[in-house]
C-alpha cells in the first residue's frame, strides 16, 4: 500500500514536471507547477515530515507560484521565442551531466549501503510507530533543532530574506 502510494505520487510528480517544462502556454506551465508542489507536499506527509509539507504548501504553492503567475501575466509574451539552432548540442551536454549525476547517486547509495546496512533496516523496523505519532512532535523537534543548534544560520537566512526583499523593491522601482 505504501509502495503503491509512493509510485503513484512519483509518477504524477514526474509527469507534471515534464508538462511544466513542455507546456506551450506559460500560464498553463505555472498551473502545472502548483499541482506539482501540492503532490510533493503529499509526498512529504508520507515521509513523516509534516512541518515541511505545510511550509511547502504555504510558501511554494501559496507564495512563490502566485509571484510567478503575476510576472507571467504582467510580461505578456506575444510570440514564443524560436528554438536555438544548436539545441541538439545543449541536449547532449544535459544528457551527459544527467548521466554523471546518476552515476554519483548510484555510487552514494552503493557505498553507504555497503558500509552500514544495519541502520536503515532498524529505521524501517520502528517506522510505523513514529509515523503514528502526531504531527506536533515533528514540528516541535524541528523547531527545537532550528532554534538551538542552527540559530546562526537561521538568522543569516532571515537577513538574506530582508536583503532580497529590499533588492526586489529597488529593482521594481519605476525609473531604474
Amino acid at each position: 500500500m505504501d509502495a503503491f502510494v509512493f509510485y503513484l505520487l512519483a509518477t504524477l510528480i514526474l509527469g507534471l514536471g515534464i508538462m511544466v517544462i513542455t507546456a506551450r502556454n506559460a500560464v498553463h506551465s505555472v498551473l502545472f507547477l502548483v499541482l506539482n508542489f501540492l503532490l510533493v507536499a503529499i509526498l512529504y506527509v508520507t515521509l513523516s515530515a509534516q512541518f515541511v509539507a505545510v511550509i511547502q504548501v504555504l510558501v511554494y504553492a501559496g507564495g512563490i507560484v502566485v509571484l510567478y503567475l503575476f510576472v507571467v501575466m504582467l510580461v505578456s509574451l506575444k510570440k514564443a521565442p524560436e528554438l536555438r539552432s544548436d539545441s541538439r548540442r545543449v541536449g547532449r551536454t544535459g544528457l551527459l551531466l544527467a548521466g554523471v549525476v546518476l552515476a554519483e547517486l548510484i555510487a552514494i547509495v552503493w557505498f553507504t549501503s555497503a558500509s552500514s546496512g544495519a541502520p536503515p533496516a532498524q529505521a524501517a523496523a520502528d517506522f510505523p510507530p513514529r509515523l503514528a505519532s502526531d504531527a506536533m512532535l515533528n514540528t516541535e523537534r524541528l523547531g527545537w533543532v532550528l532554534y538551538t543548534e542552527y540559530l546562526i544560520p537561521f538568522e543569516v537566512a532571515s537577513m538574506l530574506l530582508l536583503v532580497a526583499m529590499i533588492g526586489a523593491i529597488v529593482l521594481a522601482k519605476k525609473n531604474l
Binding site: Y60, Y68, L161, A164, A172
Partner: peptide, 21 residues
C-alpha cells in the same frame, strides 16, 4: 529543507524583479 525554501523564495523574488525591470 527549510533553509532551501527560504533561499528559493528570495531567489524567486529577486529574479522576477530583474525580469520585470
Amino acid at each position: 529543507v527549510v533553509f532551501i525554501i527560504a533561499v528559493a523564495a528570495a531567489e524567486a523574488a529577486v529574479g522576477l524583479g530583474i525580469i520585470i525591470a
